[in-house]
Write a protein that binds this DNA or RNA. Structure first.
Length: 257
DNA sequence: ATGGTGGTCGCACCA
């Protein structure tokens, strides 16, 4: 038996719906975590996904942010939480569900704008809440996936010097990332591709995709217990080349279960 | 200097 799980920041689900449907039909992951759906729950296109055999769990809001999880598992995702239990946040960025015996945590980490700004402080605060949330979880098997807005190392950046100490690559953000790993998580992509240099996001400007000026900021973390079963983790750059694409590419991991 | 959203229909905000 195989279990596959993917993450994709779609930058508006309603605009990207044809892409998401085409991609789901082609790859048929068991679970897809979506970020930046940018629509309230009442506008979520449930029918399109139900037709493809997916259960939907949604935490949306108007215009900004918004996360959702789609699951093919017949029993559907059991909701755990939308948002942190101890941190009131109007921004919809966190969705936890349990599928079989795995806690799946879909994250849309704040972008942070620029080092030293209020948004950057909010990003670090948000990451500390994520750290505590995971730390306090009693689940033995956990997958955290989504848009982390962190490039963990210079190998994850097309031009590291340009990004040195900048947002997405600063020391404090990388410390927060390392803090999560220290809870017993493995970066699935890096674990399987120690010298890989694929990216998951390319700015819309400056023809960044064509020039492969990208960063690896979308990740799938698996708790140590799941790592022996990890089979594959790859970035699918193909949809980034489609017409009117998201600026992010999907990342997909599969496990022997 | 592109793209998505919403408000107003040229522009602010966010990434």
């Amino acid at each position: 038996m195989s279990f596959s799980i993917a993450t994709w920041n779609v930058n508006s689900l309603l605009v990207r719906l044809p892409h998401v449907i085409a991609w789901l039909e082609q790859h048929q992951p068991d679970v897809l975590a979506l970020q930046e759906i940018k629509c309230p729950n009442e506008k979520f296109p449930y029918d399109a996904f139900i037709r493809l055999g997916y259960h939907c769990f949604v935490s949306g809001q108007k215009t900004y942010n918004g996360v959702a999880l789609l699951s093919r598992h017949e029993r559907g995702p059991a909701p755990v939480c939308a948002g942190f239990p101890n941190f009131l946040d109007e921004q919809r960025r966190l969705l936890g569900v349990t599928i079989q015996d795995i806690l799946i945590v879909n994250v849309y980490v704040p972008n942070g704008a620029a080092v030293g700004t209020e948004k950057y402080a909010y990003k670090l605060e948000w990451l500390s809440h994520l750290q505590r949330f995971i730390q306090e979880s009693l689940a033995k098997k956990i997958i955290i996936l989504g848009d982390f807005n962190i490039a963990p190392a210079d190998a994850d950046i097309y031009e590291p010097l340009l990004w040195h100490d900048q947002v997405l690559a600063s020391g404090a953000e990388r410390d927060a990332w390392e803090g999560l790993l220290a809870l017993g998580f493995v970066d699935c992509y890096r674990h399987l591709s120690p010298s890989g240099n694929e990216y998951t996001w390319w700015d819309y400007r400056q023809a960044a995709f064509r020039r492969n000026m990208g960063l690896r900021i979308d990740h799938i973390l698996a708790s140590a217990l799941l790592v022996p079963q990890l089979k594959e983790c790859c970035v699918d750059k193909i949809p980034r080349a489609w017409e009117r694409p998201s600026d992010h590419a999907p990342v997909i991991a599969s496990f022997f279960l």
